[in-house]
C-alpha cells in the first residue's frame, strides 16, 4: 500500500467494492499521484489530500466500474428480453390450451419460484451501483435461473408434444435465443475483470 494512511484508507474503501485487479490498477495511479504531489508540496499530509482531491471519490469511481461490468450489461439485456419471451410463451400457451396439459402442481410451483428468483436477482443486479461483486453474483444467479426456466419449459414441451403452431415455434426460438445469450455472456461474467 501507499506511504500515507489517507491513501490507504481510500484504497481500502475501493477494495471492499471492486475486484482486486481493478484496485491494484487504481492503487498504482493514486500512489503515483501521491508521490508527485509529495515531491511538489513536500508535506505528506498535504500531498495525500491533494492526490485524493485529484483522484475523485470512491462512490463515483465504483459506480463507473459497476456500470461497465458484464454482469450489469447481461442483467439489463435479460430484463429487456424477459417480457418478450414471457409474452411469446403466454400466447403459445393460450392458443395451445396449456391449462389442459398434465403438469403436476409441484412443477408449476417450482416454475413460479424460479421465475421469481430470476426476476429478483436480475433487478438486484441492475439496481446495485456500488458493489461489483454483488452485481456479478446477482447477474449470474439471475442468468442461471433464466436458463433453468427455459430448459424446464423446453423439456416440458418436448415431453408433452403439443400441436405445432407458429406461436409455439416463436416461443421455442425465444427461449433458445435466451439460453444462447446467457451461455455467451457467462464466461465474461466469471472471468472479468
Amino acid at each position: 500500500m501507499a506511504g500515507h494512511e489517507l491513501i490507504d484508507r481510500h484504497l481500502q474503501a475501493l477494495a471492499v467494492r471492486l475486484p482486486r485487479s481493478v484496485v491494484e490498477e487504481l492503487a498504482d495511479g493514486l500512489e503515483t499521484s501521491y508521490e508527485e504531489q509529495l515531491e511538489r508540496l513536500g508535506d505528506p499530509e498535504e500531498a495525500a489530500r491533494a492526490a485524493l482531491a485529484d483522484f475523485g471519490d470512491p462512490d463515483t469511481i465504483t459506480t463507473a466500474f459497476v456500470r461497465l461490468s458484464p454482469g450489469k450489461t447481461t442483467a439489463i439485456r435479460l430484463l429487456v428480453i424477459g417480457p418478450l419471451v414471457g409474452l411469446s410463451w403466454g400466447a403459445a400457451f393460450v392458443t395451445g390450451h396449456a391449462w389442459a396439459w398434465s403438469i403436476p402442481l409441484p412443477a408449476r410451483l417450482a416454475f413460479g419460484i424460479a421465475l421469481s428468483v430470476a426476476v429478483f436477482m436480475l433487478v438486484l443486479a441492475v439496481r446495485e451501483r456500488r458493489h461489483y461483486q454483488a452485481v456479478r453474483l446477482a447477474a449470474l444467479g439471475g442468468a442461471a435461473s433464466a436458463v433453468v426456466l427455459d430448459a424446464a419449459i423446453l423439456g416440458t414441451v418436448a415431453s408433452i408434444v403439443p400441436p405445432p403452431s407458429l406461436l409455439l415455434l416463436l416461443a421455442l426460438t425465444a427461449s433458445i435465443v435466451r439460453i444462447l445469450l446467457v451461455m455467451r455472456a457467462v464466461p465474461a461474467m466469471i472471468r472479468h475483470p
Binding site: 481493478v22 490498477e25 487504481l26 498504482d28 495511479g29 493514486l30 503515483t32 499521484s33 485529484d54 483522484f55 475523485g56 471519490d57 463515483t60 469511481i61 463507473a64 466500474f65 456500470r67 461497465l68
Partner: peptide, 26 residues
Amino acid sequence: HGYAVKEALRDTTDGRLDLPTGTVYP
C-alpha cells in the same frame, strides 16, 4: 498507464483538460 494518460492530456492542453484520475480508469 492510466495516470500517464491523464498527465498526457493535461500537458498537451496546457492544463485545460485536467480530468480526475479516478474517472480516467473506467
